[in-house]
Amino acid sequence: MTALENLVQNLARLPGIGPKSASRIAYHLIKTDAAYNKQLGLNIATIQEQVFPCSICGSFTEIDPCPICEDHSRDRSQLCIVEAPQDVITLQSSGAFNGLYHVLGGAISPLDGIGPENLSFAKMLKRISEGQFKEIIIATNPTEEGDTTALYIRHILKDRQDLTITRLASGLPIGGDLEYADRITLARSLRGRVQF
């Protein structure tokens, strides 16, 4: 296998990159400045040494605990539970949430061999019991796995009468047309309707 074929094959293993995109990226890198390629290679080679999960919430960070967990101006009565570290970044970019986060490390998926014991539920329960939380916000993805995970969280917290358990609303996007919405999105929108 040539060096170019090897690079294309490795690039194609990245999520969202197919063989054609991998080939375009590889040819772009061949024509790019060598200093850029060296810096990119160094960034890739050292990323796991520089970025790691926060020991408290599980989000990716370069310092431990992460800046969000260390920020005492945040609302420590709210805990938002997400599936993946990138979900924290997405929610933070909205500017609408100022509480704390807990990253599960995935969603329950029996078909993929992922059960509750494979995710950070024990750590989540410990944080909740030791914290001063009043609201648990379940922000799992609106998928079968995300719904299963949300139901499991609600189940393991059912005896905690001191907690309000909420779930992110899901439904139609702003500016979207009903005719382009799929059945599941429409059904979720109808079930999650609010008084106007």
Rank of each mutant, 00 (worst) to 15 (best):
E135P: 03
S59P: 02
E62W: 00
D147K: 05
V103E: 03
N118W: 07
L190W: 01
N141F: 11
L11V: 14
T32V: 06
F60M: 02
I30V: 15
D177V: 14
I56K: 08
I56S: 11
L111S: 10
E117L: 13
S77Q: 05
L29C: 12
G175C: 08
T46R: 11
L119F: 14
S73G: 04
Q50A: 02
T143A: 10
Y180D: 10
F97L: 05
Y101R: 00
G95L: 04
G58M: 03
T166W: 07
S189T: 09
F196V: 15
R183H: 07
R183P: 11
I44W: 04
K31T: 15
T148V: 11
K126H: 10
G18S: 12
T149C: 12
S55Y: 00
C69H: 03
I63R: 01
H155M: 14
Y152T: 14
L4D: 08
K31F: 09
P85R: 05
R13W: 04
A187S: 09
I184Y: 07
D71E: 05
T32Y: 03
I68M: 05
T90G: 11
A45L: 14
L178E: 06
C54N: 02
L172Y: 02
L79D: 03
D162P: 11
S55H: 01
S23K: 12
I114C: 10
I137A: 04
R193N: 09
G41H: 06
Q78E: 04
P173H: 07
N37C: 15
D159H: 13
Q50Y: 00
C66H: 03
F60D: 00
I81S: 02
G192N: 14
R76A: 01
A35Y: 12
A45Y: 05
Y180E: 06
T185P: 08
S170N: 04
L172G: 06
L4T: 11
A96W: 02
L190F: 05
Y27E: 12
F60A: 00
E49A: 11
N43K: 10
Q39C: 07
R127M: 12
V51P: 02
D182V: 04
S170C: 05
N98Y: 00
I17H: 05
R188S: 09
A35D: 14
L186A: 04
N118H: 15
E179H: 11
I128K: 06
I156D: 09
A84P: 02
D182M: 03
D159A: 13
S129Q: 13
L29Q: 11
P110F: 09
E179L: 10
T2P: 06
E117N: 10
V51Q: 01
G115K: 02
A26P: 14
Y27I: 15
T61G: 01
L7R: 09
R127W: 04
Q161C: 13
D75W: 00
Q86Y: 12
V82H: 01
A22T: 14
K134C: 07
M1Y: 04
R24K: 13
R127N: 08
K20N: 08
C80H: 01
N43A: 15
I89E: 04
E144I: 15
A139K: 05
A187M: 06
L190R: 00
P53Q: 02
T61V: 00
G16I: 12
E179R: 11
S94D: 04
R13Y: 04
N118L: 13
E145I: 14
T2V: 06
G192Q: 10
G41W: 07
H102K: 09
S93W: 02
P65T: 13
E145P: 09
T46M: 12
L168S: 06
D33M: 08
D87V: 03
T148L: 13
N10T: 15
